[in-house]
Amino acid sequence: MKSYKGSSILATDFYIRPISSLPTSFPSTTLSYPTRNRFLSTRIQARLIHDDPVKQSEDLSFYDLLGVTESVTLPEIKQAYKQLARKYHPDVSPPDRVEEYTDRFIRVQEAYETLSDPRRRVLYDRDLSMGFSFSFSGRRRNRFDEEVVEEKSEWKKKWQTQLSGLKRRSNQKENSNSMSWAARMRRQHHHMSDDDSSS
């Protein structure tokens, strides 16, 4: 793993990026924590460079982030994402720009996660048409949407049925000795979530 000599960054290094005109007004501020070692210096460096991906990406829509139009198809989204990954992923980015590229990569990922899910894309498009073009607004509601979406999905239902069938089968002969602790815990966890959904 990389050197962490610079990771004990002084608390004064953080800064606050105010986000105005968000549809869901909470939280009113978002925090920016130090990204990587040499955080401050790169930020300053980045500002001196004309084409600053970090700064730009803050006000881009998900479509802008992926460099596609709003009429883009799913295969095109996947392709765009993989191409951008080849550029911004820390494994392949130029060593002197790893930190800012990683920031950009995380944003591209958020864009991809939302736009590659048809239901989430619909919700995002709705926000976008109402004038909330910030990628950040999409990010804020990701989790909430995810829960709604997951309940309806066919793929989930299908595998869920199979999983509970498997569980039933193995419970019939249950003596949990040979199962690892984690397996038992996961099983317990699944039972709990089963109960929740049936109620």
Binding site: M1, K2, Y4, S7, S8, I9, A11, T12, F14, I16, P18, P27, S28, T29, L31, Y33, P34, R36, H89, P90, D91, T102
Partner: peptide
């Protein structure tokens, strides 16, 4: 979580209306 899988946890305290954390961020 960075590319080499190192995990860092940050915590900050904000008060409504304040634009910056009221105590130093913990990393």
């Amino acid at each position: 979580i960075d590319a080499s899988n190192a995990l860092r946890v940050f915590a900050a305290v904000l008060m409504p209306g304040s634009k910056s954390p009221v105590v130093p961020v913990v990393e």
